[in-house]
């Protein structure tokens, strides 16, 4: 279970890192005055959030690779196993979708600053 959480955290870390990069990377440009940060960034971050949701809901998080590995190792995959896998996948989808909402939140904050 512990390792499981670690992996989930790792998966969470990618989009969060991208979010941070999105928020902070263009700031220097804005300081120099060549980039309308507060006009454009909210929408870009918002779009990124939606894009993340799309990825998060379509990605199987390696389930297929895992199943193939299991099949190659001649392990019987029962319906329960599949259910568990889909449950996990759904769980990860939901996590990514919530991170998408986090993106939205950040977008709003920047918009209202």
């Amino acid at each position: 279970m512990k390792e499981n959480t670690k992996v989930i955290l790792r998966y969470i870390s990618y989009p969060i890192a991208i979010l941070l990069a999105l928020v902070f990377a263009p700031l220097p440009l804005w300081f120099r005055g060549i980039f309308p940060y507060f006009q454009v960034m909210p929408l870009i971050i918002f779009f990124s959030g939606i894009f993340l949701m799309v990825i998060g809901s379509f990605w199987d998080f390696g389930a297929r690779i895992y199943l193939n590995e299991l099949m190659e190792a001649r392990i019987k995959i029962t319906d329960e196993n599949l259910k568990a896998i889909h449950k996990k996948e759904l769980f990860m989808n939901m996590i990514y979708i919530s991170i998408g909402f986090l993106y939205f939140l950040v977008a709003f904050i920047i918009y209202y600053i």
Partner: peptide, 17 residues
């Protein structure tokens, strides 16, 4: 040994075995 959960993703679905 072949590491079934060698890929980070596999780690997620390790409930089967």
């Amino acid at each position: 040994y072949f590491n079934l959960r060698g890929s980070a993703s596999g780690e997620l679905f390790g409930s089967i075995s």
